[in-house]
């Protein structure tokens, strides 16, 4: 008889179950109709099985989004967990699509599934990548724009993980401000 180590057949469980969503911009449909759930996973191995199977973000058409959210939270402002929340926003230049986009998004996913923000990971709702001709965006969404301690911890760790230079400023904005903004920029609650 052969003894097989459990390491070889037991998958590594994640702290949370996650859902990957895809948004494709079809102007003949409503915003919600363009949003589709791709799949859910709750182990490291199933995360990679999904990630290895889908298109890299840099190959998506303009107007598309991927969203990774905790199971039970929908990737929209209206969800109860997002209503009083906000996001750390990373805006990328057109040149960065080739150099940084896929690397930044994978790093963002690894931060989420690996619970990189320790106990402040409970404040994380999910992350979104927007593919846009005028400039791509990546954001981590958190649940409470008033939880300064969690937000600043998440922002510091995230910036370090992405390798964003200290002199580059990233901003945290509430969804309420983003939804009601009049111009093209939203004021930062934290930097």
């Amino acid at each position: 008889q052969k003894v097989v180590s459990p390491e070889s057949y037991i998958k590594h469980p994640l702290q949370n179950k996650w859902a990957l969503w895809f948004f494709k911009n079809d102007k003949s449909k409503t915003w919600q109709a363009n949003l589709r759930l791709i799949s859910k996973f709750d182990t490291v191995e199933d995360f990679w099985a999904l990630y290895n199977h889908i298109q890299l973000s840099s190959n998506l058409m303009s107007g598309c989004d991927y969203s990774l959210f905790k199971d039970g939270i929908e990737p929209m402002w209206e969800d109860e967990q997002n209503r009083r929340g906000g996001r750390w926003l990373i805006t990328l230049s057109k040149q960065q699509r080739k150099a940084d986009l896929d690397r930044f998004w994978l790093e963002t996913l690894l931060c989420l599934v690996g619970e990189a923000f320790d106990d402040h990971s409970d404040d994380v709702c999910g992350a979104v990548i927007n593919i846009r001709a005028k400039g791509d965006k990546i954001a981590i969404w958190t649940t409470d724009y008033e939880n300064k301690e969690a937000i600043t911890h998440i922002g510091r760790v995230y910036k370090e993980r992405l390798g964003v230079p200290p002199k580059v400023i990233i901003g945290y904005q509430s969804h309420a401000d983003t939804a009601t903004k009049s111009g093209s920029t939203t004021k930062n609650k934290f930097v």
């Binding site: 702290q15 690996g114 990971s121």
Partner: peptide
């Protein structure tokens, strides 16, 4: 309870394992 945390090195190593 305890939180299940994985660092990036471990997660990346899992990508290539069978």
């Amino acid at each position: 309870g305890t939180r299940i945390i994985y660092d990036r090195k471990f997660l990346l190593e899992c990508r290539s394992s069978p």
